[in-house]
Design a protein around this nucleic acid. Structure first.
Lengths: 114, 114
DNA sequence: CTGGATCCTAGTTGATACTG
DNA sequence: CAGTATCAACTAGGATCCAG
C-alpha cells in the first residue's frame, strides 16, 4: 500500500491511521516476529522469504520512522544490525494478536469453502 | 495494497492473512462504518469523500468476495443497493476497535512530536 | 442512483549489480 | 553482512464516459 500520510492525517477515522502504519505489505509480519524478540537483518530475511531485500529495508525504515522499531548498528566486521520493537511498538501487541487470531479464523473458513 | 492471495495463503503467519483482507486502502474505514449499520452506496460515498467511486466499488466487491459484506440490490427505480456486514464480518469488530484505539494513540503521539 | 468499461498516469516493486 | 543504486515492469488508482 502506498503511504499517504496527508490523507491519513486528514481523516477522522483512526482505523485508517493504524492501517497506514501497519498496513504495508510486510509490516504486519515484521512486527509479529519482532514481538518475539530482537532480530538481525538476515534473520528477518529468513522469516520473510517472499520479501525482497530491498522491500524489507524499506519497510523497516518506515517502521523506524514511525517510532515502532529501533535500529542498532554495531561497528563490527562483518557488520551487524539489530532490530527491536520500541515501547510504542510493543503497545501494538494486543492489536497484532487480534489480527492473528482473526486470520486463523479466516483461514479455517477458506478451507471449509474449498 | 495489492491483493496477492497466493502469497497470503502460502504464508504461515495469520497476521498477513488478516491484513490481506482488511488492509486495502479503504477497507478499514468501510468496515468501520458498516459496523455502525447498513449503508447505501451513496451513503458510503459521503463517508469516504477521498475515495473515488471506482475504488469504493472495487473495495466493496472484494469485501463481498471475502464474505465480510452482504450486498443487497433492490429492483427499484431509481436503483438502491445496500451494504451490510455478514456475521463473519461482524466478527472483526474487536479487531477494528483495537485498531481504532491504537490509531488514536498514534495520532496523539504525532501531535506531541509536532 | 449505482455502477461498468476504458484509458491513462504516477507510484510501487522486483531484479540485478555494486559497496563499506 | 547489510545494505544502496539503477532500471524495467507492474499495478493501483483517477478521470471520464456510458448504461440499466
Amino acid at each position: 500500500m502506498a503511504r499517504k500520510r496527508d490523507d491519513d492525517s486528514k481523516t477522522n477515522c483512526a482505523v485508517e491511521a493504524s492501517l497506514g502504519v501497519i498496513g504495508g505489505r510486510w509490516k504486519g509480519v515484521v512486527l509479529y516476529w519482532l514481538l518475539k524478540g530482537t532480530h538481525r537483518f538476515g534473520e528477518l530475511r529468513k522469516r520473510l522469504p517472499n520479501c525482497s531485500q530491498r522491500m524489507l529495508t524499506l519497510q523497516l525504515r518506515e517502521l523506524e520512522e514511525d517510532g515502532l522499531v529501533k535500529r542498532t548498528v554495531y561497528a563490527e566486521v562483518p557488520p551487524r544490525v539489530e532490530y527491536e520493537l520500541t515501547a510504542f511498538g510493543r503497545s501494538l501487541e494486543p492489536v497484532l494478536m487480534g489480527l492473528r487470531e482473526w486470520g486463523e479464523k479466516y483461514k479455517r473458513r477458506l478451507q471449509r469453502a474449498a
